[in-house]
Design a protein around this nucleic acid. Structure first.
Ligand code: FES
Ligand code: FES
Lengths: 149, 149
DNA sequence: TCATAAAAAGATATTTTTATCTTTATATAT
DNA sequence: ATATATAAAGATAAAAATATCTTTTTATGA
């Protein structure tokens, strides 16, 4: 449902959260290698995230991407909205171009409540929280990044 | 979420159900025009549906597409599975490549129940039923096919 | 100041999806 | 039988998404 760009973004931000500090910034190549995705494509995506203030970056030697104070409250919603446009979740699941109670598709009455819950969750789930869950999870399944396609 | 091909297919099958009979078959151009979608692309999609027995067709003069006895029990699920591959609904909503309880993504616990309900609904909703709903609906909103993008 | 490493920006290439065009096969009517 | 209308099949084109490559900018360290 998400574009690859969005998947890569989520994956990369989680990796960044768990593996970078202001004193240990990570290059896009480094991240791409770790999570096994195409490096130049990720570089583009990281640029988008930086531009919207979801992650931070510094150019030059010893530069790279990292998370700063400003980034700590960012959510999963922010990442997806930056890369993919969140409207995709608002629209009809079966792709009618209006999704509302007055003109429901066959799936509407089961999709609408799900959609509401999902968006609420995406908006409240911070990157930090998510990274933490991911860290725990990787105790059970340490090929965790390979799992993200 | 659905491909355009699938959307077109659903739309066309509904139109066919409500507007064709064995004595009044419809050409692909005719249908495409009525539901305002690209004719040659729809033709391809109708061929796929025919091959899988979801709709019927006859070549030659006065030929065209129509629904026969064999098609009456077909469901929305059948259409989508024919054109798009239903696996797309089974997979993780945030695109992890495994979707299961042991390795849930952030959305899993709200997505899984929705997914189950949806697939059940797609499997039980017959084309006939859907076309009927659509007919009623179009009393309220008679630009109903324009509504399908 | 100068060389260097890295992001940023821009340009190009590949793949997939969507759309169109052309040819062939077949059923119908004359 | 023959001409015709239509689906079926196959080939090609255009657009969008994904991926890669090249150049420019900027921060750092020597
Ligand atoms: S109209 Fe389809 S999900 Fe709302
Ligand atoms: S793991 Fe993502 S929806 Fe199940």
């Amino acid at each position: 449902m998400l574009s690859k760009a969005s998947k890569y973004a989520i994956s990369a931000v989680i990796y960044l959260t768990n593996n970078s500090t202001i004193d240990k910034k990570l290059g896009s190549k480094e991240i791409a290698e770790a999570i096994e995705i195409p490096a130049p494509f990720l570089a583009k995506t990281l640029q988008q995230l930086t531009k919207k203030g979801i992650i931070s970056s510094i150019k030059g030697p010893h530069g790279g991407f990292y998370l700063s104070e400003k980034n700590t409250d960012k959510t999963l919603f922010d990442i997806i909205d930056c890369v993919d446009d969140i409207e995709k979740f608002n629209s009809c699941y079966l792709s009618q171009n209006n999704c509302n109670e007055n003109n429901p598709c066959v799936a509407h009455h089961i999709y609408a409540p799900f959609k509401d819950k999902l968006i609420r969750k995406l908006k409240t789930k911070t990157i930090i929280e998510m990274a933490e869950e991911f860290k725990q999870n990787s105790n059970l399944n340490n090929q965790i990044f390979a799992v993200l396609t």
